[in-house]
Design a protein around this nucleic acid. Sequence first.
DNA 1: TCACCTATCACATTTGAAGGGG
DNA 2: ACCCCTTCAAATGTGATAGGTG
Length: 385
Amino acid sequence: MACGEGELSSLAKGNVEHLRGHLSDDPVSLTSHQGIEGIQVFLHEKDLWTKFHTVTTEMIITKAGRRMFPSYKIRVTGLNPKAKYILLMDIVPVDTHRYKFADNKWSVSGKAEAAILGRLYVHPDSPGTGLHWMRQLVSFHKLKLTNNHLDPFGHIILNSMHKYQPRLHIIKADEKSGFGSSNTAFYTHSFPETVFIAVTSYQNHAITQLKIENNPFAKGFRGNEDLEMHRISQMPSKEYVLVPQNTTRPRLVSSVQFPNRLPHSAPYMAVRASTEKGQGKDLFSGIAVRCFCLTDADLSGASVFLQQQQHDGLPHFLCPTLTCERNQPYGAEPACLQPCMFSSSRGDTDETDWSFYPECLPQQRFSTGQQVSGSLSYRPDSLDF
DNA sequence: TCACCTATCACATTTGAAGGGG
DNA sequence: ACCCCTTCAAATGTGATAGGTG
């Protein structure tokens, strides 16, 4: 059903270029059309786009060309199943400003550079029948952005630090509709949440984090703390680096490293990590969890607490150790708690009570001052400290 | 000369397609 | 035909450094 580039070349490529003259340069109007009625397009992963949009989406541009993330994917309805259509994208400047990122926000920094002749990205399945386009997601994930004004690969050329609006065009590709003439039937749509600023390196750390968390190819940058804690665990105890407990750590806990000595006076988070989907989250019934240690007064030991992020936005704290003899959520900051420590040595019969977490049964217990490292396994039967 | 901003490159890591062997 | 494994190109953000500008 899909039609290749060759067919496009012979049938219509020249005409598609010719169509540029008919396409509006106005990025603000969301939809315009001529000779086509009833088409609807829906943005795939709209929620993800919105997440990026709320912190101002940035797209990397490189000399070699860089794909967009999130990918531009759409679902189309309302096409004539038997008629042929060409689907294509272009990306147009939103305004005539150049932008800068300072004080954690984007602002206008001057006049835009001269606009580059806009290139079109024709979907490789073009021309395809309405049935073909409607029965599956239409993905423009292979579209690449470049800042190379002499780019020979047909990538879309943009200026760094300028704001752009991607647009979708659906063009009826048959002679009857006057294809290639001024009567060509077309439909154009812009999704406001896909506006982005082109950059050569990310400016806003929030965007970097969103990309890392959502782009599978950036998976290698997730959970860097895992690697860090592993590195730390290989160091002599005096060289442990401790992270203040109030450090924002939004992710879930799956692995644990405990130094054998901790400075006193403040709670420290000595634990961290999560790389696998669902780890921690499932263990703790879908609530975000993090672990940290409290020291006792003579620096000789640490206790483990688990912090639950409640839906009311207030963190509650659980102490699963026997010493505390409290298995209730604490409605207070950990600093308000009396430090408690593991009073038993390894092999002692004292039970660390993990019963609050029915799936979470430690195979071993800690002793005071004992260096403990290991991981909370995803599978309840393989918890291993 | 200096500070600041932006661009570029090598790098480590992951993904996923392709190909070979059993 | 199917499964498993290996290989490799492509995609990705990082961090150091280069280059441009005022």
